[in-house]
Design a protein around this nucleic acid. Structure first.
Length: 415
RNA sequence: GCGAGUGUAGCUCAGCUGGUCUAGAGCACCGGAUUGUGGAUCCGGGUGUCGCGGGUUCGAAUCCCGUCACUCGCCCCA
């Protein structure tokens, strides 16, 4: 710590950015509630096992990106790198399988030891929804529609594209995986080093490799759609019909796969080209085998997570609300009156700015700078007449209002 | 984890073939013109360990090495 600086990959959220950040979360929470998703929160850290078991040993998230440490009691704990594992753990430990289905909304910080880039931080935030207990494609459609509505309400749906794919049920996925390994094994010599490693660990990932050589080979690879059994194919078709019926636009991307092992059937991403290589702003999928693999009763689930920082970056500047009232006292009597009036106004819900010092000119300047809507001058003249001079800072118009009515009048005007 | 670029004032940047650089500009900021009135104008003010450490040199913001941070690509993903 040579200089006083934030830890690599972490950021201070100063007011302007915090406002954008909060807007994303508020809108998401509001729409989640409309869809029946109740807000809940799980701890920021869990036993390391929770993430190890669920994310799969092959994912980078588990193998090299977790903040894991031993606490003073000798337990290995990990700062959560994603939401689903914790929510499902909670679902099991709290015995929630008695009240299916459950729909949860969550928001909070996540931690991943990655190389920082724009839109990729070591501490970042996500909004997250999980729908547990519905095996029908209707859940997929609703979860996707919710994401779509949130992006629309934030005014950024037009900057994104929804890509969907189906990984099929476990049987289809296993069959496809076998065909894929078979195919790529015949071209090992032409694959990039990265993809050769993926062939062992996660062959599906070769499909979205950006290496040019890989892409040529991938072009001839068997298609996932051709490996779907009839159940899986019909499931995917039902999801698409549902999206069509709601007017949610999407494109099917057969190369779309997910990094985490627990996904099946529907996989999707809302992507943007506005953020460089960090294109995914919201993504998720169905995880029908997860709850059981964590030791709970066999229960289907689907959900998504959205990157708050990435979503916030897509939004333009937010107009600051001009609802503040600045009190401008002149002289000792005015100061005393202003303090009381400020308290009264705040009690009525009005945002009040009361500068600690400065002459009238300075205080007016400050009122203007913070975007106050009105300034109230309180000097000896006013107090003698029992009024306050209210100046509308946008128009410059001034009028006198009796002190007794001041609080109520300002409260009404700035509501 | 790999490859590359950048790092000078609060912000955006100029300076970088080493020597008027005791380091500049615009914006922002502070004070004043204006001790009862903000936005405009004018006057004045530089607010800086030139990311940090070391090296080369008579002399380094400028060249070299290391390091830290950010950015871009890969990887990964939100």
């Amino acid at each position: 710590m040579a200089k006083l600086q934030p830890v690599r990959g972490t950021h201070d959220l100063l007011p302007e950015e915090a406002l954008r950040h909060r807007r994303v979360v508020d809108v998401a929470r509001e729409f989640a509630e409309r869809y029946g998703f109740a807000e809940m929160a799980t701890p920021v850290f869990e036993f390391t096992e929770v993430f190890k078991r669920t994310l799969g040993d092959t994912s980078d998230v588990v193998t090299k990106e977790m903040y894991t440490f031993t606490d003073r009691g000798g337990e290995s704990v990990t700062l959560r790198p994603e939401f689903t594992a914790g929510v499902v753990r909670s679902f099991i430990s709290e015995g929630l399988s008695q009240q299916l289905p459950v729909r949860f909304f969550s928001y909070g910080p996540l931690f991943r030891y990655e190389r920082p880039q724009k839109g990729r931080l070591r501490q970042f935030h996500q909004i997250n929804v999980e729908c547990i207990g519905i095996a029908e494609p209707q859940a997929d459609v609703e979860v996707l529609a919710l994401g779509h509505d949130i992006l629309s309400a934030l005014g950024i749906r037009k900057d994104t594209r929804l890509e969907i794919n189906s990984l099929g049920d476990p049987e289809s996925r296993a069959a496809y995986r076998a065909r894929l390994v078979d195919y790529f094994s015949g071209h090992v010599g032409q694959l990039s080093d990265d993809s050769r490693a993926r062939l062992e660990r996660n062959p599906l990932r070769i499909l979205d490799s950006k290496d040019e050589g890989d892409r040529k080979i991938v072009a001839g690879a068997p298609m996932l759609a051709d490996s779907l059994n009839s159940t899986s194919a019909e499931f995917f078709a039902a999801v698409r019909r549902g999206l069509d019926a709601l007017g949610v636009e999407y494109v099917v991307n057969q190369r779309l796969v997910r990094g985490l092992d627990y996904y099946s059937h529907t996989a999707f991403e809302f992507v943007t080209s506005a953020l460089g290589s960090q294109g995914a702003v919201m993504s998720g999928g169905r995880y029908d085998g997860l709850v059981e693999s964590m030791g709970g009763p066999s229960t289907p689930g689907i959900g998504w997570a959205g990157g708050v920082e990435r979503l916030a970056m897509l939004m333009g500047d937010l107009a600051a609300p001009r609802r503040i009232v600045a009190l401008v006292p002149i002289g000792a009597a005015g100061e005393a009156k202003a303090l009381v009036l400020a308290h009264e106004l705040r009690g009525l819900g009005v945002r009040v700015d009361l500068a600690a010092s400065g002459n009238i000119s300075k205080r007016m300047k400050r009122a203007d700078k913070i975007g106050a809507r009105a300034a109230v001058l309180l000097g000896d003249d006013e107090l003698k007449k029992g009024v306050g001079v209210v100046r509308d800072l946008a128009s410059g118009a001034q009028r006198e209002i009796a002190l007794a009515d001041l609080a109520r009048a300002l409260a009404a005007e700035t509501a």
